[in-house]
Design a binder for these strands. Structure first.
Lengths: 249, 249
DNA sequence: TTACTTTATTGATCCAGATCAGTGCGATTA
DNA sequence: TAATCGCACTGATCTGGATCAATAAAGTAA
């Protein structure tokens, strides 16, 4: 079942979308969160034409890796992904989690090569944007260029916050910040901010936050003991978002 | 004295540039590293026209802070800057150091507001690019847009590496990585890769790497004892870049 | 030059969170 | 319903780097 698979009107729309690969951006339930925002209707038609609604990815499947030739950037259509950067030795850092409407692969533009790896965390699908064509299209579509710049800048801004988190926050602050970030993103997508299903493992969370799995587990338990959240494995209910917010630092 | 103030032909050119505020991009010694790269000569003239060669900044002076109205992004012309993000309590994370030809303020585009603070580390100057005008210009100058996207993506890519550093590297690996990053950037600007003057304090370095000042100090001493580097306060000589590289992880 | 302030170094001690070592438990299969 | 298999949780111990505490050296001002 999809991470975003709550029984809400929006989800039923989304489910329909998932089965209709060639639905236009204009009809897509992600419209407000996605690239097309602010484009004129006739521009949108052109954008639609270059988008490849590609196949679905199953849990654990790679969207791309550092050995994939760079051709495209992607927007998550359904499900979720994680990105990682790896060192020569086995070490890996989870650099981000990506939800519907969010871009994956923007850091590859500069070198025209993927420097990260992206993996589906659950059954997921993407819209593929061939970079050449996107660029070509941008030449006559300033709004599109602006949107792209804005998206890149947004990710940059998020990464700076993550640097603060990794460099300066305590374990407790890290996890509280993480939970509220996920919560906000669910809310932005029309789902409950307080009840959701985490699609990533404790290990992925720990890695992303620069912690050990054990620390994350202990903190989940403590937050639960302190009645900030309720946990049933990967299902999270935030019961005191007030107090959780105050723990973010 | 400028951090980049070695007595080399390039530096003398640069010094001249610093005194001639209205020098065109085409004449600028940073040309190869900077935004104009790849622009046609007539496009360059238009770009030149919107660039404000603004006043010099002295050590410690703010280029912008989170309370500055957003109007422009900047390219370092001479000297160097640090950027920080701050929490409500006093905590601060140094998110980056910026050298001539590098962009500062790109993370402000999304929210049209500075979310970071930028401070000069020494006597420095910038080229100011009013964002409105830059965007206007971009509408008829696809090469410029491409350059901007590329720059944004480059910083994104660097930030992912920094996340790996902050989340997964040991103190030793962090400092070795830092020294080589600075070394490479000096080299790219035509200066010695092995002998340079750090413009930032030990505290800034420590903060940026997620370490305590004392740890950085001890590591500098150890690297010196191990004959990897020689230190005379802020002057660094890399004497064994081979071994230093092997410490980066 | 001296006096003073800021920054860097070094040593001693401490601790948040890592690591090590089991145990628990939910999902899947038979 | 039991057996298997990953995750997730919890307790015990350890440690890398933080913090605390002095100096020492470099910069700055008069």
């Amino acid at each position: 079942m999809s991470q975003l698979g709550n029984v809400t009107p929006l989800f039923r729309d989304l489910a329909k979308v998932e089965h209709e690969h060639n639905i236009a951006c204009e009809e897509c339930s992600l419209y407000r969160l996605c690239l097309p925002l602010g484009l004129h209707s006739d521009d949108l038609v052109q954008l639609d034409e270059i988008i490849k609604r590609s196949q679905n990815f199953s849990r654990g499947q790679a969207l791309f890796s550092t050995s994939t030739d760079f051709n495209s950037i992607f927007v998550v259509r359904s499900g979720s992904f994680k990105t990682t950067v790896s060192a020569g030795d086995g070490r890996e850092q989870v650099t981000g989690f990506y939800f519907p409407g969010e871009f994956v692969g923007l850091d590859a533009i500069y070198e025209q090569a993927y420097r990260s790896n992206a993996k589906a965390l659950e059954s997921s699908s993407v819209c593929e944007l061939p970079y050449d064509q996107l660029q070509e299209l941008g030449k006559n579509m300033p709004q599109l260029q602006m949107q792209m710049m804005s998206r890149l800048s947004k990710e940059l801004s998020g990464d700076k916050s993550l640097m603060f988190l990794l460099g300066k926050k305590t374990a407790e602050e890290k996890l509280a910040t993480f939970l509220l970030s996920i919560s906000r993103r669910f809310k932005d997508r029309g789902f409950s901010a307080n009840d959701f299903q985490l699609s990533m493992s404790r290990a992925d969370i720990a890695n992303h936050l620069g912690l050990a799995v054990e620390t994350v587990s202990r903190l989940f338990s403590r937050f639960s003991d302190d009645r900030l959240i309720e946990i049933h494995n990967k299902a999270i209910s935030i019961t005191d978002s007030e107090k959780l917010t105050s723990l973010c630092g």
